[in-house]
Amino acid sequence: MEFIPRPKPAITGNEAVHLEDAYHGYLDTSTGQVKTVLNDIDLIVSRGEFVSLVGPSGCGKSTLLKLFTGQEIVQQAKYFQVLGRLPSFPDRTRGVVFQNYGLAPHLTVLRNILLGLEFQASLLQRFSREWWKQAKDMARKYLDDMRLTDASRKYPTELSGGMRQRVAIAQTLITIDLFGMPDLICMDESYGALDASTREDLQIFILKLWENYKKTIVFVTHNLEEAVFLGTRVVVLSQFWTSDEPAAQQQGSRIVVDIPLEPHAMSTEVKQTTEFKELTKYILDRGFNPKQRLHVAQFNADLRHPNAFSSLTKEQCASALIDQPASAPPPVSDSRTE
């Protein structure tokens, strides 16, 4: 296996996320040492991409997302921009959909959906009966779209998981429609708590939303099928890798798979095709197997997305010429279009 450094793609200014040489960790209070979670992450996401982010438990998927939304501040990075600037604390340029807690429990569904509008309303509008009437009419349109018409006066605790998730999406949707914000939507295991059929409904739904608005979506999920079905690109973050560095520096997760996917077919039937299954198996082999740790030089050679790049040093790959256990060859670009 040859050592092939992957060059950085040309920067066009059209990046939603641009992260280079990023390290992030936590202070482990029991040992007093910093535990690295993200190890040398290089990631460029163009605007309009639908990135599925998967990885084993504890690999730092959610942490990476928190860096994008501004909930956490990256500890070390050569370059970090989200939507053209260093991400500050959470604001309306970057939306987020959580698995839980996204909804204000003390507000009805209607009022929850109105939140984005209310936050932008001027003092005058907030006291105007007319404004409220218009706003509520508008929110009802979204309720109808979301098949939540009957639930408008209910509180979040009175809803099923799928309904709550639809409300959470509607909250973000109404702000996109009215203000063109957010440009980047981070979904943190949003569908984790849903049953299979609700999940498929909402998968189709988010795809339609993405087609209509062409916003950038980073979708963190545990479910490989979901990842491959939804994304235009699958990024696998995994702590199961090896290099020629001392063991102490081999902590944390790296991007071990980064593959482009063809545009979506709007049918969940593609999940049954052989290509689809091979792809999920490939991802499973590469990223989720603690017994078969791939060498950095090898998986870096296999990063296939045009935006994928990595900044390896010769030291990390000194033994890269030694034979590595050959893994299944990456499948050829899947043909999932109808």
């Binding site: 909930q71 604001d91 932008q120 702000t175 203000f179 957010p182």
Partner: peptide
């Protein structure tokens, strides 16, 4: 999460 959500909605 509640605070973050509100901030991302523009609060």
């Amino acid at each position: 999460e509640l605070t973050v959500k509100a901030l991302t909605l523009g609060a």
